Computed example of a mutant assay.
Amino acid sequence: MFLRRGVHSGQIMVCLVCTRAKLPHAEELCRTLTAQFSDIATILINVNARNTNVILGSETHTLYGPGFIEDTLCGVPVQLGPLSFYQVNTLAAEQLYGIAAEYAQLTPDDLLLDLYCGMGTIGLSMADHCRELIGVEIVPEAIESAKANAARMGDAIAAKSRFFCADAGKAASQLAAEGLHPDVVMLDPPRKGCDEATLSAVVTMSPRRVVYVSCNPSTAARDAKWLEEHGYRAEKVQPVDLFPRTRHVEAIVSLQRGI
């Protein structure tokens, strides 16, 4: 079993991980839990019969409530299911995204390209400050969540936001080939960092600024070096400790195109 709690909403999700979809006395369990804990918004069963170190399976059944909880991150309303990626340290994540927005230095005429956008949280948190937002993410469920999050923010934000389901490197290369010229590119890759195709496409699009959000400073340093060798200059680096008392740290790197 695992729990998710919305820091700002207070809503709690209870997810039972079982080897089969049927749970004896499920209705009684739901009544007991919700009577004891009023903040429980939904209870689910996730089915995972595999004997691996992967916690969750792809099949989920709702026992109680809507099947998700709601919260906000940097003012962006989100709906979280059991499979949704979400920073576990919400308050520190808001600091992280705030620094990224500061480094982006957006103006009202800017086009912001958000690669590895996930549920769109980083880009949408900055959408008020730019002319257009384009987000790219390879996970279909995350893209659907990003579109829904944009819609919940109102017509003005939804109208200026577009999200595409694609590999970041291939999408960046295609957008570069189509002559897209974003003013600012936001990169938030997985721990392995960006591949050279993505970095090459970014350089081809020639944004004035690249903001790199990283959960692995060593690969961020590698990619920043590559960008430095291809016309960009690293200006600032800021670590943010999302995982206290561990060796892991997030970092934001601000890079500006050379003159």
Rank of each mutant, 00 (worst) to 15 (best):
D183H: 08
A197C: 12
K170N: 13
H181D: 06
D195M: 13
E141S: 14
G193M: 01
A158N: 07
A166N: 13
A142D: 13
V139K: 03
P189T: 03
A151D: 15
K160M: 07
L187A: 01
H129V: 09
A197Y: 12
M126R: 02
A127E: 06
D167P: 03
A176E: 03
A168C: 09
M126S: 04
K192A: 15
K147G: 03
M186S: 11
A197P: 09
H129W: 03
P190I: 11
A146Y: 00
A168V: 05
L133T: 03
P182N: 00
F164H: 15
L175K: 00
D128Y: 07
P182I: 00
K160C: 10
I138L: 14
M126K: 01
I134T: 07
P190K: 08
Q174W: 14
E141C: 09
K192C: 14
A159T: 13
G179P: 06
I134V: 14
V185D: 01
V139N: 05
A127G: 05
A158E: 11
K170H: 13
C165G: 10
A142N: 12
V184K: 01
M186C: 10
A151I: 13
R131I: 01
K192F: 11
C130R: 01
M153I: 04
M126E: 03
E141N: 15
D128V: 07
F164L: 14
D195H: 15
P182C: 01
Q174R: 15
L180E: 08
F164Q: 14
A172T: 15
A166R: 15
E137D: 12
P190W: 13
G154N: 01
S145Y: 12
I157R: 06
V139Q: 04
E137L: 01
I138W: 09
V139Y: 00
F163D: 00
C165T: 15
A156G: 08
R131K: 14
I143D: 02
L175A: 02
D155A: 15
D183G: 08
L175M: 15
A151N: 10
D155W: 05
Q174D: 06
D167K: 01
P190T: 11
D155P: 13
A150K: 03
F164D: 09
G135S: 10
A146S: 09
H129T: 12
I122R: 00
C165H: 09
E196Q: 10
N149G: 10
G123N: 05
A171C: 07
A158M: 08
A159R: 11
K160L: 11
A158L: 09
A171F: 00
A146T: 02
H129Q: 07
A127V: 13
C194W: 00
N149M: 09
K147H: 08
A142R: 11
G123D: 04
N149V: 07
D155C: 12
A166C: 14
A148M: 15
K147E: 04
R162V: 10
P190M: 13
L133N: 02
H129P: 02
P140C: 10
R131M: 01
A159H: 08
M153H: 06
L124K: 02
I138C: 14
K192Q: 15
R162T: 12
A158R: 08
Q174P: 04
Q174C: 13
